[in-house]
Simulated scan of single mutants.
Amino acid sequence: MLSFLKKLFGLESSNAGDFYPQPVGGDEDLVQLVKFMVVRMVDEPEAVQVRGENNDKGFQITVKCNQSDIGKIIGKAGKNIQALRALVSGAGVRGSRRVSVEIED
């Protein structure tokens, strides 16, 4: 468990690469935030694809990854995805935007 937390917060070298977003504020930064978090949750970070698009309900961020990693993103009883959505939604409120996060099968 401790090694997972170290990997999650970047305290231990991992396959996540040198992906470190620079905070500025905007839609692309929300996409970068989601990618930063998701890459550290999964076993195969190279397979993670995150894209954002405007729709009639606001801004939607879609995460695509390996089928075996979807459970890690969702978490036990949906706790991980719920927390990720809360973070992104809160950041979107700062910009007066409605933001949603979806996982693509």
Rank of each mutant, 00 (worst) to 15 (best):
K72A: 11
G71N: 09
Q82K: 13
D29F: 11
K76V: 06
G71Q: 09
G10W: 05
G71A: 09
P45V: 10
M41G: 01
L8W: 09
K57I: 10
L87F: 07
Q22G: 10
V34E: 03
S14D: 14
V39D: 01
D105E: 15
K79H: 13
D56V: 10
K72Q: 12
L5V: 12
E53F: 14
A91R: 00
P45Y: 07
L2A: 13
N80P: 00
F59L: 08
Q67G: 07
K7E: 13
I81F: 11
P45T: 13
L30S: 05
G75V: 14
Q32F: 12
K79S: 08
N66S: 10
E53W: 11
F19N: 07
D56C: 06
G78N: 03
F4G: 05
C65Y: 02
Q22L: 08
M1N: 10
G17Y: 07
K57F: 01
A83V: 08
K79C: 07
E104L: 11
E28D: 06
V34H: 06
A83Q: 04
R94V: 07
F59W: 06
I81R: 10
D105M: 10
G17H: 07
G25N: 03
S3K: 11
E104K: 12
V39G: 00
V31S: 00
G26I: 10
V99F: 02
I74V: 15
R51F: 06
G95P: 04
Q49P: 01
S89E: 06
G52R: 07
Q22H: 14
F36Y: 15
A91G: 03
V99S: 07
S14L: 02
R98T: 13
I73F: 11
A83P: 07
A16C: 14
V101C: 01
I61Y: 04
P23W: 07
G26N: 09
F59P: 01
S68Q: 12
Y20F: 14
D18K: 13
E104I: 11
G95Y: 02
K35Q: 15
V88I: 15
K6Q: 08
L33N: 02
E44G: 03
N66H: 10
G78E: 00
F4T: 13
S100D: 13
A77L: 02
T62F: 05
G90L: 08
M1A: 14
C65L: 12
S14Y: 00
K72C: 12
M41K: 04
I61F: 01
V24S: 01
C65Q: 08
G25A: 05
V48T: 04
